[in-house]
């Protein structure tokens, strides 16, 4: 291939895109809207998993002390807790603080507890675990061990709640994954059919080019360039629309996060490659190679 041929191939690609503006715009719109479904899905998944992750880090184990426990034993318990694997932080909550918290949580006007002659709440330690150790299994083991110590009344971590939440999260990720696969394959299918139609539309061009003696590279390259460009423009369109959706969504949920730069770059690259690949595949049938 000499320089002229190379120049003409690039020229052909430009001509194809420009002269068939209408058809190309429609293809790009179809591709862009399908890709929008993908990025919306990714964004929603990203935000939900962030919320789940955040909720997970707020899990604590409450270690309630026996009423009669003396200061030494309590201190001892604190040291033992701090020495355990996976423990990040231990905070002492006195029965008084606990009662104040409880009162506050009942609301200002409540006089429900005013008649109380003694404080029924125990002293407690609030144990925060390192992120890697958050999980019902580890917490159960830890709870059981702590519960057997001398001076400890009970270790609680909301066993049933956590187990149910974990099941729910697991279910969510499974559904999310399957849904993601379905969306992914539908979009690839829609895009490859759109591109195939573009190629089909130019069957005559391909036929004529073959007749006058164009090489397969000369015929095919402009189509591949066109496919890649369509992929890039469509992905930019999808990202642009997602931006608009995101901005609107942020009014109601200001804590939403957007896709990272790396994800956007990967997405655009993927779309370019997808466009080129489906174009190449569609061409193969017409070129009989």
């Amino acid at each position: 291939m000499n320089f002229n041929e190379f120049r003409y191939i690039i020229d052909e690609a430009g001509m194809m895109l420009w002269r068939r503006k209408g058809a190309n715009i429609i293809s790009i719109l179809i591709m862009g809207l399908s890709l929008l479904v993908v990025v919306v899905f990714v964004l929603v998944t990203l935000n939900i998993s962030r919320v789940i992750g955040k909720a997970g880090t707020e899990l604590r184990i409450f270690v309630y002390l026996e009423d009669a426990v003396d200061g030494r034993t309590a201190e001892n318990i604190q040291y033992r807790l701090l020495g355990m694997k996976g423990v990040e932080e231990v905070v002492f909550i006195s029965r008084r603080e606990a009662l104040d918290d409880f009162k506050q949580s009942l609301g200002e006007g409540s006089d429900f507890l005013d008649d109380l002659e003694f404080n029924p709440l125990p002293d407690a330690y609030r144990v925060k675990l390192k992120p890697d150790y958050l999980g019902s299994r580890f917490m159960e083991r830890l709870g059981a061990e702590i519960g057997s110590w001398e001076g400890v009344e009970e270790a609680r971590y909301g066993k049933r709640w956590i187990e149910r939440a974990e099941k729910l999260v697991k279910g969510f990720y499974m559904v999310d994954f399957v849904l993601g696969l379905i969306i992914f394959f539908s979009v690839v299918f829609v895009i490859s059919n759109t591109v195939r139609l573009t190629v089909l539309y130019r069957r005559k061009t391909i036929e004529v080019m073959k007749l006058v003696g164009a090489t397969n590279a000369y015929i095919r390259t402009p189509f591949i360039i066109e496919g890649a460009l369509q992929g890039i423009i469509a992905s930019l369109l999808a990202i642009g629309l997602l931006c608009a959706v995101f901005t609107a969504g942020c009014r109601y949920l200001p804590e939403l996060v957007f896709l990272g730069w790396e994800a956007i770059v990967i997405f655009i690259t993927f779309c370019a490659l997808l466009g080129a690949a489906v174009s190449f595949a569609a061409m193969r049938r017409f070129l009989k190679i």
């Binding site: 291939m1 002229n4 041929e5 002269r19 080019m209 006058v212 003696g213 090489t215």
Partner: peptide
């Protein structure tokens, strides 16, 4: 003939393809 190309370009095509 390629209908999205003018007369000149249709003729030129045969020569463009061999550079």
């Amino acid at each position: 003939l390629l209908e999205d190309r003018n007369v000149f370009e249709n003729v030129a095509l045969a020569m463009r393809i061999n550079g």
